[in-house]
Simulated assay, not measured.
Amino acid sequence: MSEEKFYHFGYASNMLKERLLVDRPNAYKKFVCVAKLQGYKLTFDRIWPLPGDWHGPCATIRPDPGVTWGVVWELEKGDKDALKNQECKLNDIDVIVEDQFGNKYTCLVFEMGGSDHPGERPSPQYKDIIIRGARQSGIPEDYITVLESFEDNGYDGPHALYSQVLESLGHQAFVTLYISSIGSRKLSMRTFLYFAFGSNLLKERLHIENPSAIFKGIAKLQGYKFLFSWGNQDSSPEEACWKGCAANITEDPSSHVWGSLWELKDEDRPSLDRQEWGYNPITVTVCDDKGATYTCLTYQMKGEPTGETLPSPQYKDIVIRGAKQSMLPPEYIKFIESFPDNKNTTPVDIYDHIVKSLT
């Protein structure tokens, strides 16, 4: 990492990229990984008498034998003061966190000082942003369950910061408050947008685990390039279910990636995450052929590329079938067809299943 950058460990609302950028919309940001902080637990406290921007207490970490999960972000050092200003009521400290592969990162994190109001309930809006960030980043599902278990304070009045974050996500029109049968206030999110660029271009492949997906059209992701790669250092591509490398995107200012835009029910997000278990979820902005822009979920392969680049002919065929089904530009389809494959001839069960569903 460059001396001009630093790592920030976001464990609450800053797990959501759109919240992190509210005060720094043009800030350099890079999702590094999901990581865990040992010896701390997450709780909700406040040290000031007023509710604040989130209409309730804020998250903090406290020493504890447990673990706190969060996101490691790479930020410009010039943005450090703005980040500290956002977290003005908290103390900044350095901690060491560890990702799922055992890699360690020294990160700036924020911890509340003494507390006069420990263990209070957060607003449902603040809690929702934390959970959205956890899902967007691929935090382990059992930890998300822990986050969901915190009771909220039922606040349902105006919430400027929450509305601002939702607007940047493109979800404002889909958000409603309702009263559940037990009388507690909860947030109901209906749908989200997903940008597919690999095998999920094909409806029949995506619908295996995500039957609610509705095709909305094609879109272009600028500043990224398409490739086939492999990021698992502990196994070879031939051991995977597709018997070869998988589609991936990497940042490249001079390139673009075409894909299909899908609308899914929020309840299907966990199944999409499970299907894309080898990828990190990221949020991107894409545009359609009319110039309209959309904020979408997509996935980028975990780990450092091993140098492997060959997909199986079966996997490549599904990607091309999906590109043609979605009616991506002909020149882009030719671009995908130009990639060599690994000539695999062993059976690929998922391929046989999909092809059978097409006949």
Rank of each mutant, 00 (worst) to 15 (best):
K265W: 15
L202P: 01
D266F: 15
D268I: 11
T285H: 10
D234I: 04
E276H: 02
T250H: 06
D273M: 06
W258G: 00
S212E: 07
A247T: 07
E238G: 06
S271R: 09
N248G: 05
I208V: 13
L206D: 02
H256M: 06
E267K: 06
E209N: 14
H207I: 09
V284H: 03
L261N: 01
K216M: 15
R274K: 11
R205K: 13
A219G: 14
R269W: 15
W277C: 14
K203H: 12
H207S: 15
L272A: 08
E239N: 09
E239I: 02
K265L: 15
D268S: 13
L261V: 02
E251M: 09
L202G: 01
A219T: 02
N210P: 15
I214V: 14
L201D: 03
A247V: 07
L201V: 07
K220F: 04
A213V: 07
W262H: 03
I214K: 14
A213Q: 03
C245S: 10
N210Y: 08
L201Q: 02
P270N: 13
E263H: 13
F215I: 07
D273T: 10
P253E: 12
D234S: 12
L261G: 01
T283E: 05
V286M: 10
I249D: 02
I208M: 08
D234R: 14
E239D: 14
F215T: 05
W262R: 00
E209R: 13
E209P: 03
G198R: 00
H207G: 08
S229T: 06
A213S: 13
